[in-house]
């Protein structure tokens, strides 16, 4: 394996004539076109963070803020900035680790089960929650936890105030997240494991390796690149828009003020404080701050990974 990699590494340094590269550029064209169109062309919008944005003058024509960083002020001055930054980090790391570990475990177990019918049924079942939108999950949670009509309180016969105690939500939020996403990641990892050449396992079995040894020395190392890519992508999303799923944090706790200490992340905080003002400049400012932190984190970890295992690096 490792010798092969070295050869590849040498190949990269050779100069490849453009004619040889041309077909690839043709194939990349549509993808790059749409990425440019959808993601790069709107980029000047970042400028709004430094502007006193006004629709009549447009993005470029609007006046610069004076001082330039005034739009950033509100976030850093808020008394909860520390709590919500902590929450953002905590939940993302916790969820990333939980989902990854559980999903890998499940996919390995699924791979062990050779019974076709049972694996199909299991896979289908754990994938079900992925189909639900967060607002539906909010309804489900409410029907479970509602103080007077909820199923849990009916079962235990007491009136537990689920929506008033922040402590519960430190557990409920990650659990709900894992519940919704673990199926998705399991399926990705099952696909990754399916891609492993069965020769390796056959050879290992001939050598008398136990199941556990096979998992440790074949499966895990070979799906490592997938794990790294997914984790890196996660780090990136960590600070940029909370996985596009931030409304989980907004909808799940029913927007309950008493829980903000435990449930607020940067995005929900920003959404809430600017709801009445509707100020695009301040929203853009916080977005930019998140992007910059995300950028540092991703490039930092990518750099480290490049040193350890160059093939797994994102770029």
């Amino acid at each position: 394996m490792s010798r092969f990699k070295k050869n590849q590494g040498q190949m990269v340094k050779r100069k490849v004539p453009f004619k040889r590269q041309f077909p690839f550029y043709v194939m990349m064209m549509p993808g790059l076109f749409f990425i440019t169109l959808l993601f790069y062309l709107p980029m000047p919008g970042i400028l709004i963070a430094f502007k006193n944005f006004n629709p009549i003058d447009g993005i470029f024509g609007s006046e610069w803020m004076d001082p330039l960083f005034k739009n950033f002020e509100f976030f850093f001055k808020s008394d909860t900035a520390k709590t919500i930054t902590f929450n953002t980090l905590l939940y993302n790391v916790l969820e990333a680790v939980l989902v990854t570990v559980i999903a890998i475990a499940l996919s390995i177990m699924l791979n062990e089960l050779k019974g076709k019918v049972s694996t199909t049924v299991y896979k289908g079942a754990i994938l079900l929650p992925t189909f639900l939108s967060w607002i539906v999950i909010q309804y489900i949670l409410f029907s479970l936890l509602s103080i007077d009509k909820g199923i849990f309180n009916n079962l235990i016969g007491r009136e537990v105030q689920w929506y008033s105690e922040p402590f519960y939500w430190r557990i409920i939020m990650p659990l709900a997240y894992v519940w919704k996403n673990v199926g998705y990641y399991s399926v990705l990892y099952v696909a990754a494991i399916a891609g492993i050449n069965t020769d390796y396992y056959e050879a290992a079995q001939l050598d008398g390796a136990t199941k556990w040894q096979q998992i440790r020395h074949i499966t895990l190392p070979l799906i490592k690149p997938t794990v790294i890519v997914l984790s890196l992508l996660w780090v990136g999303k960590l600070f940029s828009g909370g996985l596009g799923d931030w409304n989980a944090f907004y909808t799940l706790p029913n927007n309950a003020g008493a829980l903000y200490g435990a449930t607020d992340v940067i995005d929900t905080y920003v959404y809430r404080s600017l709801r009445t003002l509707g100020d695009y400049g301040m929203t853009a400012a916080v977005g930019l701050y998140q992007s910059l932190v995300g950028l540092i984190l991703v490039f930092g970890s990518n750099h480290v990974i490049k040193k350890i295992d160059p093939d797994s690096a994102l770029f």
């Binding site: 790059l32 990425i35 709107p42 970042i46 993005i59 977005g287 994102l314």
Partner: peptide
Amino acid sequence: KISLFVYLPVLFNGGLVPT
């Protein structure tokens, strides 16, 4: 380089108005 070009929008986006 192209990978980086593809990846950057995960971090930076122009927001709703320009889109």
